[in-house]
Design a protein around this nucleic acid. Structure first.
Length: 431
DNA sequence: TCTGGGGTCCTAGGACCC
DNA sequence: TCTGGGGTCCTAGGACCC
């Protein structure tokens, strides 16, 4: 009994999210920009057809976008996160065997749906997601994750599939399709490795499948070897349902304007630390170490480049924003240099452990009473910021952000913050 | 003028210990 | 004066993902 993996992938996810709330955007070219309105990170099919590439610096395509009346959006992550949760909930109604792989993708195990063809189930599932959330999805099916990914790619590129394709149902056409997938587009093969593979005469997914696994391991590593096995239909990557707690948590931003003053940078670092600490508490962890980094623009050749980071132990491991801000400010002081125009900075929490494991303090026992007071206070802080929007309550050290906040000139209007109060929107063309 | 953010895994090499 | 070998842990760097 072979298993059947399905990869469900939302089509042009961020662009589709914007469309759900504004039906007049249907069939119009849409691009969504990265933080700070820097790069293009999502495009509707119409924008793709105009030749706007993924990841391109937006300023290079601004004129084209103006000329062709492209709808431009700053990214709106609270909205996309809410829509993602709705999609994932809809999938979970179908089967409990769901691995949420990214904000817009999930793997599903369709191996034990007795008596039904997997592709039929997948089609029903895609229709349900579309009906309940307004988001169009594609589904690829195969005996391994790598093959399900490939199937999804084929489904997206071949409209006659209706967005659903089972690789094992292709029969003799299967290898022809795999031969058309460049090896760089195989899941897990990036730019570097695909270049080397091409040099070795391995150009397509089919070529890679036919390669000798031992040889591949010698020339590359176990990761690529696993991909060869997966392409052959031997599953090496399983469905990961229990999300392990993150091992590091980071907040970093490019600034809307270059930062030159120490006080402004200290505010930014404090705000990033507070945000990171909130994420830390969300997954119920403590941090045993903290890293701060700052950097100038690597693109500007007229100015000297400077980049530095400092890591500090946090003793004892902490979850309190105030404690972590103090450590972060100390780390910043060690790396700050006057005279540079800083473009970006960030804070990373490392050496994470479960929050309920408290190490003995070196001197004296932990004061349980004040510890539980502190926990209550942090709960109130996080609760308010979640309900009323980030930054409702913040530490004085964070300042007002005027000097460093990112640019977001094209943000969609405020349907975003309070999902629970929204009417449910439906795409115009669903039955 | 304008170039994102947040993660993971694997490996090599050094420190340290017995 | 000679000067082993193996294990573990940690870190940095390189690759990948969306």
């Amino acid at each position: 009994m072979s298993r059947v993996f399905a990869l469900v992938d939302c089509n042009n996810f961020y662009a589709s999210c914007e469309r759900v709330f504004d039906p007049s955007l249907a069939s119009r070219p849409i691009v969504v920009l990265s933080n700070n309105d820097g790069c293009v990170i999502a495009r509707s099919n119409e924008a793709k057809a105009l030749g706007i590439p993924m990841g391109a610096p937006f300023h290079e395509f601004k004129r084209l976008a103006d000329h062709d009346k492209v709808e431009v959006f700053s990214s709106n992550y609270p909205l996309y996160g809410d829509m993602s949760a709705r999609v994932m909930r809809t999938l979970a109604e179908f089967t409990p065997d769901v691995e949420i792989y990214s904000i817009d993708e999930a793997f599903i195990d369709l191996g034990h749906l007795a008596g039904r063809r997997p592709a039929d189930v997948a089609r029903e599932l895609a229709q349900r997601v579309r009906r309940d959330t307004g988001i169009p999805v594609s589904v690829g099916l195969g005996p391994t994750k790598v093959l399900a990914k490939a199937a999804n790619r084929i489904a997206k590129r071949n409209p006659e599939t209706g967005g659903v394709l089972d690789l094992d149902a292709l029969g003799p056409h299967r290898d022809a399709h795999l031969a058309q997938i460049d090896v760089k587009d195989v899941w897990g093969i990036g730019r570097r490795w695909s270049k080397r593979l091409h040099e070795d005469g391995i150009h397509s997914a089919l070529d890679l499948r036919e390669a000798d696994p031992h040889l591949v391991r010698r020339r590359f590593n176990v990761v690529v070897e696993r991909i060869v096995h997966e392409l052959r239909g031997f599953s090496c990557l399983s469905l990961e349902q229990a999300v392990p707690p993150k091992q590091r948590i980071m907040t970093s931003r490019s600034f809307g304007e270059r930062v030159t003053r120490y006080e402004d940078m200290r505010e930014a670092i404090s705000a990033f630390t507070a945000r990171t600490a909130a994420k830390l508490r969300e997954q119920k962890s403590r941090a045993g170490a903290l890293m701060v980094f700052i950097q100038t623009s690597p693109f500007n050749e007229q100015e000297p480049f400077y980049q530095n980071g400092a890591t500090r132990q946090v003793v004892p491991p902490a979850r309190d924003s105030g404690d972590l801000i103090a450590v972060a400010q100390d780390a910043l002081e060690a790396i700050w240099k006057d005279g540079y125009r800083y473009m970006k900075a960030g804070v990373m929490l490392l050496d994470l452990s479960p929050e309920d494991v408290v190490q003995e303090r070196l001197f004296g026992a932990v004061d349980n009473a004040s510890e539980s007071e502190r926990t209550k206070l942090l709960g109130v802080l996080d609760g308010l910021n979640e309900k009323m929007g980030r930054g409702t309550l913040h530490y004085a050290a964070e300042g007002d952000g005027k000097a460093w906040k990112m640019r977001q000139d094209h943000r969609s209007p405020g349907y975003t913050t309070r999902w629970g109060e929204l009417p449910i929107a439906r795409a115009a063309d669903t039955p």
